[in-house]
């Protein structure tokens, strides 16, 4: 495979999961991160839909990267993304009707998820199909993990359940606020703070040992 200078497929894959996690490190895709993490089922459906769009958009963009005109590239990215989002929206309506009703406008809103357009811009429009594909898989996994990490505590504390199955004892009070928008912001804030704190203390330890 021709070397195109940038990070290799393996590096792209690993970076997307933790070192450049779209939610925790890049703060991209905040709209679905806050809006559909009230329960794990919705969060994982959103992660799956986003992964499908990201993978298809990255692969297609990489295939046509030689033909892109610099000043028209964003237009082409948006066109590609919008097409796959429309397809995934119809598929959800056909095969997961209840879930598509629950996600409502947030499926079409994947079109404006900066996470996807940033992968097209940073990786797919410059690198080979294989690298773009592994980048998409890595970033999608990172996004799914991030959504799960926010949805799990919200559903557990707000509804006493995980994936819709009750797991908390009946006596445990349900904190409705965790299911409401403030719960999303509080959870995201605490987890972001925690992730940054861990990242910094790891860096400090690394610097101390060098």
């Amino acid at each position: 495979m021709a070397n195109d200078g940038g990070p290799t497929a393996g590096e792209r894959f690993i970076r997307g999961i933790i070192p450049e996690n779209p939610v925790y490190r890049q703060l991209l895709g905040m709209c679905p991160t806050l809006a559909v993490t009230g329960n794990l089922q919705a969060a994982m459906t959103m992660a799956g839909a986003t992964a499908f769009v990201l993978f298809c958009a990255n692969v297609l963009t990489s295939l046509i990267r030689g033909l892109l005109k610099p000043h028209l590239r964003i237009l082409v990215f948006t066109l590609v993304i919008a097409t796959f989002v429309t397809i995934v929206d119809r598929i959800l309506q056909a095969y997961l009707y209840q879930m598509s009703q629950q996600l409502g406008p947030y499926v079409p809103l994947i079109i404006v998820n900066c996470m996807i357009i940033s992968r097209c811009e940073i990786c797919a429009s410059k690198q080979s199909v294989f690298r773009a594909a592994s980048d998409a898989v890595g970033v999608s996994l990172g996004f799914a993990l991030a959504l799960a990490s926010i949805a799990a505590p919200r559903e557990l504390l707000g509804d006493g359940a995980l994936f819709g199955f009750a797991v908390m004892p009946e006596a445990m009070p349900q904190w409705v606020i965790m299911l409401l928008p403030p719960g999303a912001f509080i959870t995201l804030g605490l987890l972001l703070g925690g992730a940054n704190w861990i990242g910094q203390s790891l860096n400090r330890r690394k610097a101390a040992t060098e």
Partner: peptide
């Protein structure tokens, strides 16, 4: 390129619509 993509995507979406509606 934009024109060709728009036509191709339009056709693909029409196919998906006919198949799933």
């Amino acid at each position: 390129l934009v024109l060709v993509l728009a036509v191709c995507f339009g056709a693909a979406l029409a196919g998906v619509h006919v198949g799933l509606s």
